Computed example of a mutant assay.
Amino acid sequence: MEKKRILIISRSFYPENSPRSLRTTELVKEFARQEHEVTLLTVRNDEYHNAFEEEFGVTIKDIGQLKLPNINLNGSSGAKRLFKRGIRRGLLQLFEYPDIELMYRIPKVLKNEANYDLLISIAVPHPIHWGVAWAWRKVDPIAETWIADCGDPYYGLENDSFKKLFYFAWIEKWFCQKVDYITIPFEGGRSAYFNEFQEKIRVIPQGLSFPDRHNTNHTENGVITFAYFGNIDSYRHYAVPFLKKLNSIEKEFKFIVYTRNKNLFKGCLDQQTLDKCEIHDYVDRDTLLNSLAGIDFLVHFPYQEGTQKSLKLVDYNFLQKPILEYRNDEISDNSLREFLEYNFEQKKAFEDYRKYKIENICNRFLELIKEDRQSSIRLNNMKLIQ
């Protein structure tokens, strides 16, 4: 395999525990394992990143701590909290505050970067892409091929209560004109992007490394045990009715949760139901998968629209546990009652998790260098003919 010089730009990276951090970390590790020359631009943390560089043979450079402060709601209540929430939402809507700072920060750190075969910018936040676009030049570009990797869409995002203001469409189109490829995690997200850039879109799902297979058999021990992990705020539309439904269930059960928003669960569940729950903070992925090896089923709340897909489904499928997809309708309520009686006939169909193996995902990114090179040759040949 021909060795490549690869530059990755991401605000989220190990040891942060988030989907975008996982995306970045897995790519960096696997590209390094394949012996490519990997440079990462991120918010550097010497405590963790010095050892990471030494272990994986990569170079980690610092974007620098962002200076624009977050508007923190912790410790606020009543009218003060409402006022701060209004200010935070207003600044976000008007200026993409505070992440807009990345649009100005990225060009500065790219000044001394050149001669890469591949540049991958990873969002969210999307101002990372905008910053690369600001620094990008057709003559003497930073890399032969630039790929903008998008988790959730930006202007076409459907699970936010507030639509982006019209002028952000101009920014997204400006950046899309410059980038070579836009990668999205699944085909359903394509419709969230502008029609004129559809030919640049490639579907490359999340890449993961998978631990050794654990025992996946459930045990009917008299107490049905089910679990949910990950982001909950994007799924309130189905999660809140589900949690309130649990309050009416007299049967004994255990509900295990790993979340950053414990308050949502505590606000929806009465004390009797809370006594049946184990609500934990996030843990590292290997620990999470190991801890859920003995449960009976998993709970999934889908997006209301079809342009996004939950990353947690990859690990749900790896665990090979029956999946209850809850949509707050009569069918879902019937399925819940059946699941609680160890009847999993209405479980969500499994996908083959192996297509998400990180080595396959990295190879798909590398193939875009060849595709871009071939497109350039064809374009140059057409110019010569004309």
Rank of each mutant, 00 (worst) to 15 (best):
L82G: 02
Y228N: 13
I6G: 09
T273Q: 12
E220M: 09
I279T: 03
F226Q: 06
F166D: 10
D149L: 07
E345N: 05
V179I: 14
N112S: 15
T259Y: 14
Q304N: 08
F197T: 06
R202D: 10
K266M: 07
K276E: 01
I63H: 12
F31G: 11
K163N: 15
S375Y: 13
Y303A: 04
L368T: 08
E55C: 03
P302D: 05
T225L: 02
R327K: 11
Y356T: 03
A192T: 01
I256E: 07
L22C: 01
A51Q: 09
R89Q: 15
R337F: 01
S291E: 12
S332I: 08
N17L: 15
K254P: 08
V299I: 13
I224P: 03
K251I: 12
F339Q: 05
E144A: 15
C362L: 01
N45M: 14
D333F: 00
K3A: 08
Q308A: 13
L319K: 06
F31L: 13
N221P: 00
L292F: 10
H237C: 01
L311H: 04
E53K: 07
E371F: 07
K347C: 12
A227D: 02
P302W: 01
V203A: 08
S332N: 02
L102P: 06
V38R: 01
Y14F: 14
R5N: 12
A227I: 01
S291Y: 04
A135P: 10
H36F: 10
R137T: 15
T259V: 14
F229K: 08
F265I: 00
K357S: 12
T219N: 08
A148K: 06
D296V: 09
V299Y: 01
E341R: 03
I249S: 06
Y104G: 10
H129W: 07
I171Q: 11
L319W: 08
R373G: 03
R88L: 05
L336F: 04
